[in-house]
Design a binder for these strands. Structure first.
Length: 260
DNA sequence: ATGACAGCCCTAGGCTGA
């Protein structure tokens, strides 16, 4: 099973680039972030015609997540538990029925949190605490789990071309990294890091100031796997070339191949 | 020091993102 995460920065803006990548990379399952669309406006037929089931959790203008899957999906749920007043669409779960194993896949778009300090940063940290609680709950099921998405967290200095430029940023503040480590330390594996420990592997390059041309990137899109899922890990990669394509997102796809 | 780029929305400048 090839499982990917991709922050597309708007489904309408990526209506050509996303199908082109799907046709070339042929993932079985893709978690999308920042669809920036309500469910009714998501162009699902394009993907259904390519053989994908489409499950969306959208909202108007901002955020929004989705799962595309060529494999059967069960028990789809929307929203991150822990705050009934939270209206931001940032979490979707589904059980993917692989040929050999079923995987509980969680697609997530973790809040950016800038500027920090401030209410947006408070929301980010509270959201991460809710995610930690949800991970704990799911770990108790002992199903293989994959948490895939845009974490808006630079885990280590080696995950940024210019770490010194991020020291006061919500993506790299010590409190952010500590909250990320608390989640990982529940027993999850950063799949890409496990398979490719080299520094300088990025998943995001800003549109501004020639960041792509200068390779001034950061690695903030991650697939965190539970132990039962990490046991199935065969390969991981970042489709960097997508950033150099026609009308690209500022993020690129990150993927794993699982024996499932 | 600031803006730079891109996408979204009650089409046009303001908000958001990272």
């Amino acid at each position: 099973m090839k499982l990917a995460t991709f922050n597309i920065n708007g489904i309408k803006a990526r209506i050509e680039a996303l199908p082109a990548w799907l046709a070339q990379a042929k993932p079985d399952v893709v978690c999308l972030q920042e669809i920036k669309s309500v469910d009714e406006a998501f162009p699902r037929e394009i993907f259904e015609d390519m053989g994908y089931r489409v499950e969306t959790h959208g909202q108007k203008s901002f955020n929004g997540v989705a799962i595309l899957s060529k494999l059967p999906l069960e028990d789809v749920t929307r929203g991150l538990p822990g705050d009934d007043t939270d209206e931001q669409a940032r979490w979707i779960e589904a059980t993917v029925i692989g040929e050999r194993r079923a995987i509980r896949v969680c697609g997530l778009y973790l809040p950016n949190g800038n500027p920090a300090p401030g209410p947006k940063y408070d929301y980010k940290l509270a959201w991460m605490a809710r995610m930690e609680a949800r991970v704990k709950t799911l770990l108790a099921t002992e199903e293989p789990l994959a948490f895939c998405g845009d974490y808006n967290v630079i885990p280590e200095p080696q995950d940024a071309a210019k770490p010194e430029a991020w020291v006061t940023d919500a993506l790299f503040l010590p409190e952010t990294r500590a909250a990320f480590r608390r989640i990982v330390n529940l027993g999850l594996t950063d799949a890409f890091r496990a398979r490719d420990p080299r520094p300088g592997q990025y998943s995001f390059w800003d549109y501004q100031a020639g960041a792509w041309e200068r390779n001034n990137g950061i690695r903030i899109d991650h697939l965190l796997l539970s132990a039962q899922c990490a046991d199935l890990l065969r390969e991981a990669g970042i489709d960097k070339a997508v950033r150099g394509g026609e009308k690209p997102s500022d993020h690129v796809p990150v993927w794993v191949e699982l024996d499932a």
